[in-house]
Structures are given as structure tokens and as C-alpha cells.
Amino acid sequence: KKKREHFRQLLDETSAITLTSTWKEVKKIIKEDPRCIKFSSSDRKKQREFEEYIRD
């Protein structure tokens, strides 16, 4: 659960993310961040979390 919170925090702090951002764009920006790396090695899982984040 904590990894998820850190991942969401990373998304919060990434000012380039807007409601129209695509995962492909965002992934390029955040892929080097340790919170992104630690969250999951599964790209699909990160994408799902990102899409949920955008909906919230």
C-alpha cells in the first residue's frame, strides 16, 4: 500500500501531468524516479494506477 501512496505522490508532484496526459507521455517523465521503479516492475500495473489516478 505504501508503494502505491508513493507512486501517487510522484504523480501529484509531476506538474507535466494533466487530465489529458497519456501514460506513454507520463512514463517517459517518471520512469527514472525511484518511486516509479519501486512501485512495480509491471508496466501494466503502473498504467492502471495512473489511469485510476487521472479518474480520481
Rank of each mutant, 00 (worst) to 15 (best):
R8E: 05
D12K: 01
I30V: 09
A16E: 13
E25R: 00
R44N: 15
L11C: 02
K27C: 09
E32N: 04
L10Q: 00
I37P: 10
R4E: 11
K1S: 11
K46H: 08
P34A: 09
D33T: 03
K1E: 11
V26H: 02
W23T: 09
P34F: 09
F39D: 06
S41H: 14
E49T: 02
L10E: 03
L10I: 01
L19W: 08
Q47G: 06
S40A: 11
K2S: 15
V26I: 15
D12C: 05
I30F: 05
T14I: 13
K27V: 05
R55M: 12
Q9I: 03
S41D: 13
E51R: 06
S15G: 12
K27Y: 14
T22D: 12
S21E: 02
K28A: 13
E51H: 01
Q47P: 07
I37Q: 06
S40K: 02
D33E: 11
T14C: 13
T22A: 07
Y53K: 04
R4M: 04
K38S: 14
R8F: 02
L11Q: 04
T22W: 09
W23C: 03
E51Q: 10
R8K: 06
T22F: 01
I29K: 07
T22L: 05
S42P: 07
D33I: 09
R48N: 13
H6G: 12
I29S: 09
I17C: 08
R55A: 11
K45A: 14
I17Y: 01
F50P: 08
F50L: 07
S41V: 13
L19I: 11
I29N: 12
D12A: 09
D56F: 02
V26R: 01
S15R: 09
Q9L: 00
D43V: 11
T18L: 10
Y53N: 09
C36A: 07
K27T: 06
H6M: 15
K45Y: 10
K45Q: 11
K2M: 09
A16V: 07
K28V: 08
K2C: 15
E51A: 07
T14D: 02
P34G: 04
R4Q: 09
F7H: 01
L19Q: 13
K27S: 05
E49M: 07
K38G: 13
R8V: 04
I37W: 08
H6Y: 12
I17A: 03
R8H: 09
R48P: 08
T20D: 14
E52M: 12
I17P: 05
K3E: 10
L19D: 12
K28I: 07
D12Q: 08
S40V: 03
K1Q: 09
Q9M: 04
S40W: 04
K38M: 14
E25N: 00
Y53W: 15
I54S: 12
K45S: 12
K38I: 07
